[in-house]
């Protein structure tokens, strides 16, 4: 598979190419080349470490929407068994930007719902680039209610630039659809766990993001607006995206400081986009025990804690 490299990933790509070239020559086996390959590999490891651990907020924002980044449906077979996709909002359409249905997670049946972006042009169009219409959020809500009826914990997976800003979406009540999910998720009578696996884009992400636990993978972001959108409004120029990303503080580290997320899901050292299987294993290692914990919780406690969690969000001063 051909990788795509972002600008700041270039040095890694160049070094990798060099190593590959040398390895090919190495089949004529001189010890010198083997040593050189090992030296370069170590150098590459240090470089990877350096580049990803020191990534700026803007770079992390680019990583969160990296073209090679695994999407929801890439994780499904690695995390779940017996997934059955259920379609449609029972009213108007089936929105390909949101995928959901029951599945087994270890020994438990859960309802999984997430955004799907699409890899090639054809799938991107089918998935509308992961930007859901009201029908998508209404399908999600239908599945949440089904989960409640049959005692299935809900696991959502967030990866969207935002809700679809289109004429049809407005005509069908995009605001209403998002608002209703926020309200209904707050009192859904089963455990709800939300995980950001890429781009957490504003209200469109939040519509799958209200629950008992919020997890984020290491190189993801969750933001009120994209750095580009913010720059266009506050700097009146999209070119200020880097400054906007710094100001918005939407990385995992920032949100942890604000106590808005529960646990960070670590990623392989060069990111989930270079090693899907390890990324899935690391995700399962966090999500499975978290689910076990929530399953032990009596419903009144679960709902009370969720309500308190929501009630207490915000920082302000009281003047006398």
């Amino acid at each position: 598979m051909a990788f795509t490299y972002l600008e700041f990933e270039r040095p890694i790509a160049e070094l990798s190419e060099k190593i590959e070239e040398l390895s090919r020559m190495g089949s004529n086996n001189t010890i010198d080349i083997a040593e050189e390959v090992e030296k370069l590999s170590k150098k590459r490891d240090r470089l990877i470490e350096q580049i990803y651990r020191n990534a700026t907020r803007h770079q992390i924002s680019q990583l969160s929407r990296h073209p090679d980044r695994p999407y929801f449906m890439d994780y499904i077979p690695l995390l779940f068994d017996d997934f059955q996709e259920l379609h449609g909002d029972r009213a108007f359409a089936d929105d390909g930007a949101i995928v959901g249905g029951p599945a087994r997670f270890g020994e438990h049946t859960v309802m999984i719902v997430g955004q799907q972006k699409g890899r090639d042009t054809k799938e991107k169009l089918k998935r509308n680039f992961g930007m859901a219409r009201p029908e998508g959020y209404r399908k999600a809500l239908r599945l949440f209610h089904m989960a409640e009826r049959f005692g299935m914990p809900v696991m959502t997976f967030i990866d969207t630039a935002g809700a679809w800003p289109g004429i049809d979406a407005e005509e069908h009540g995009q605001s209403e659809a998002i608002a209703r999910n926020l309200m209904e998720l707050a009192v859904l009578k089963v455990p709800v766990m939300c995980t950001v696996i890429g781009e957490g884009g504003s209200g469109g992400a939040l519509a799958l993001g209200v629950g008992d636990r919020l997890f984020m993978q290491e190189f993801t972001t969750y933001s009120v607006i994209s750095p580009e959108g913010c720059a266009a409004i506050l700097w009146r120029d999209r070119a200020y995206a880097e400054q906007a990303a710094e100001a918005l503080k939407s990385t995992v580290k920032d949100l942890q400081e604000l106590q808005l997320i529960d646990t960070v899901i670590p990623e392989p050292k060069q990111g989930a986009h270079r090693d899907l299987e390890t990324a899935a294993t690391m995700m399962k290692a966090v999500l499975h025990p978290a689910l076990e914990e929530l399953l032990e919780m009596p419903l009144p406690t679960l709902l009370e804690q969720r309500q308190q969690r929501l009630r207490n969000i915000g920082v302000f001063q009281q003047h006398s």
């Binding site: 926020l182 209200g203 209200v210 969750y222 933001s223 009120v224 100001a247 918005l248 929501l310």
Partner: peptide
């Protein structure tokens, strides 16, 4: 809409206010 200067704290006000309607 949301107040960008409060970033995620402002986005989360959507969840907070909506939850209360219940």
């Amino acid at each position: 809409g949301a107040r960008m200067q409060e970033s995620m704290l402002s986005l989360m006000q959507m969840a907070k206010t909506s939850a209360m309607v219940n």
